[in-house]
Computed example of a mutant assay.
Amino acid sequence: MRLLLNVIWLIFGGLWLALGYLLAALICFVLIITIPFGFAALRIAVFALWPFGRTVVDKPGPRPGALVGNVIWVILFGVWLALGHIITAVAMAITIIGIPLALANLKLIPVSLMPLGKDIVPVDSVANPDRAFA
């Protein structure tokens, strides 16, 4: 079922959302000082291409720099990427088949707003916490 949802997702919205994250990453890499944001954007772009079967968890340990970085991210890119997820979720929720895709879009909004200090892991590893960060 995850494979089918991921393929439908890729065709009807995932590709466009991933391109938005890739554009954000490209801008971050060009600005040099924002290179860490670029790596976060690339990580989310891959997640936006194939979201079913994976989830977002907080990275272990204190991350004081992540808060400052996330504030900068929200101002530069987060609002626009979250708005793209909201618009895509509304468009997908119009049909019954699109409701799981709309929910996946809503699942991506928190990580699009605050990507630093997060990790994307398989859903199976969350059920078994010993494997979550292996």
Rank of each mutant, 00 (worst) to 15 (best):
L17Y: 09
L10A: 14
V57K: 11
G69T: 04
T95G: 06
D58L: 15
L23Q: 15
I75C: 11
V7E: 11
G20T: 10
L22C: 08
L116Q: 06
L10K: 09
G53Y: 02
L19S: 09
G13T: 10
V74N: 02
A132F: 02
I35C: 01
A89G: 12
L22F: 12
G78T: 05
V30I: 14
A48V: 07
V30W: 05
I99F: 07
L22N: 08
I86G: 10
W16L: 12
I44N: 14
H85F: 04
G98L: 05
L26Y: 13
W9S: 02
A91W: 10
V79S: 13
G13N: 06
V121G: 10
I86S: 11
V126C: 05
L103S: 03
A18T: 00
F29D: 04
L83S: 15
L108F: 01
V126M: 06
G61W: 04
P62H: 14
T34R: 04
P60V: 10
D119I: 07
V121E: 03
R54D: 05
H85I: 04
G78N: 05
I35Y: 06
P60K: 09
P110N: 03
L103I: 13
I35L: 00
N70Y: 01
A82T: 00
L103C: 07
A25V: 01
V30C: 12
G53S: 02
L23H: 13
F77Y: 14
N105K: 02
S125C: 11
W16A: 15
D58S: 15
I99Q: 11
R63F: 06
L4G: 01
N6M: 03
A102I: 00
V74T: 07
V126A: 06
P62A: 15
A93P: 04
M1D: 09
W9H: 02
G13H: 01
A24C: 05
L5V: 04
I120T: 09
L31V: 10
A18Q: 04
K59F: 08
A45P: 05
W16C: 07
L31W: 15
L23C: 12
A48M: 01
I109S: 01
L83R: 14
L81V: 13
W80S: 13
T55Q: 08
